[in-house]
Design a binder for these strands. Structure first.
Lengths: 224, 224
DNA sequence: AGTAAGTGGAGAAGGTATCTCCAGTTCGGG
DNA sequence: CCCGAACTGGAGATACCTTCTCCACTTACT
């Protein structure tokens, strides 16, 4: 837990919060993280308030809209995902880098429903969060090209396959409803088996989604 | 409402409906089929009424609860799915039988959201529908055993993998949001590639879900 | 001790879904 | 063609949600 203090935790641009107010702000963030992980972004700010043992008014004073709260929470998560993409690209074994990235993302979104909604559905996103999501696409492309160049990945795989696969793995993870939180690994194994290049295999008959469809489905708003 | 009127069931066993009433009943069923396909079972009976160009009261008079309407609609769909399972079992090539079954089910639930919810989520089911769903499990088991006996399917695959795979394919189908309704075939190809037995492959490291977890996730209420 | 900052939670405002009721319309047997 | 029973539409009662505001009270800090 971060050490709160009057000068380091003020709301952007405003004057420092009184000590009790700063403490409540932390409690709200902590509670919001918990309920968003478990229930997703659909929960009301009243729920968050109750869970934080704070009045609704206090939540609304600190975070005027749900978006503000979500942004405060998920900017960091998204940055970590991006770090993961970068280090996957740096992995000495291109195939293993791709595998690590897929497994890491699925592990994250399987245990954090809010992150799933932000990352893959583009729910309640805006400005900086949306930008961070858009910035990941080039990494995915590089990851795939690298794994194809090394001869491990089927050449027909495209970047737009990744979000779909991510969705599929999330569906598998959700299905166990927390009873066997790691089942998705089984289906990742199956998918990877199917994605691995094999000299004698026929290539995939059905084409992948177009980038436009993927972006629309992910709620990515193209600037420019 | 506690006592059933002598005109208990409009179509089976009751006295015949007046001609206009019978026509309206058909319109309601037709409209309900359409909106349930497109929007899922979450739609209100008011929506159904509006779409059928009929007053809400008329809907509620004919189908006292949403369950009654759903049952009237989906019993038939489920029976057709069961027929499909049977003929998949009768296919001369065990592997192709399994493939046909998976493709057929996915095609159905991809274009019929209501069926997806009934079949895979157990939403709003009861009595006969639930029984029909339960009756399919033995078929799945036979389908898998047969494909394993012929040497085409990985021996670690279990019946409980089927619903998960179905969910994953549904997730893939949903993702395209009707833009490329058939993309799921691409991911079915990948999954099948991964499920096909290959002599040199290591076996799957993560175990499949237990039957209890699957049944709970599918909302199957075990009788007895 | 004085006062600005902060608090809780009742409740207003606005939404949605379910289901009932009954004045009026339509059907169809006599 | 007439009349009672069957049937209809849809306004509105009920019973929820959710979002967000307001202000009498409490707390922190000088």
């Amino acid at each position: 837990m971060t050490e709160r203090s009057r000068q380091s935790d003020p709301v952007e641009g405003g004057r420092p919060l009184r000590r009790d107010a700063a403490r409540n702000r932390e409690r709200i963030l902590h509670a919001a993280r918990e309920v968003f992980c478990q229930q997703g972004l659909g929960v009301t700010l009243d729920h968050v308030a109750r869970h934080a043992k704070v009045g609704v008014g206090t939540v609304y004073r600190r975070f005027p809209t749900k978006e503000a709260l979500i942004r405060a929470l998920f900017e960091q998560d998204l940055r970590m995902r991006q770090k993961a993409a970068e280090s996957a690209l740096a992995h000495p074994d291109p195939w293993q880098g791709l595998v690590d990235f897929l497994a890491g993302t699925t592990a994250d979104i399987a245990e954090n429903r809010g992150l799933y909604e932000v990352l893959l559905l583009g729910a309640h996103t805006s400005g900086p969060i949306d930008a961070a999501r858009g910035d990941m696409l080039p990494f995915l492309e590089a990851l795939i090209l690298r794994a194809q160049a090394s001869g491990d990945l089927r050449p027909e795989v495209t970047p737009s396959d990744i979000p779909v696969i991510q969705h599929m793995l999330h569906a598998a993870a959700q299905f166990s409803q927390g009873q066997q939180p790691d089942v998705w690994r089984r289906y990742l194994e199956v998918l990877l088996n199917g994605l691995r290049r094999r000299p004698d295999d026929p290539s995939l008959a059905t084409p992948s989604l177009s980038n436009e469809v993927v972006e629309r489905a992910m709620g990515i708003v193209r600037p420019e």
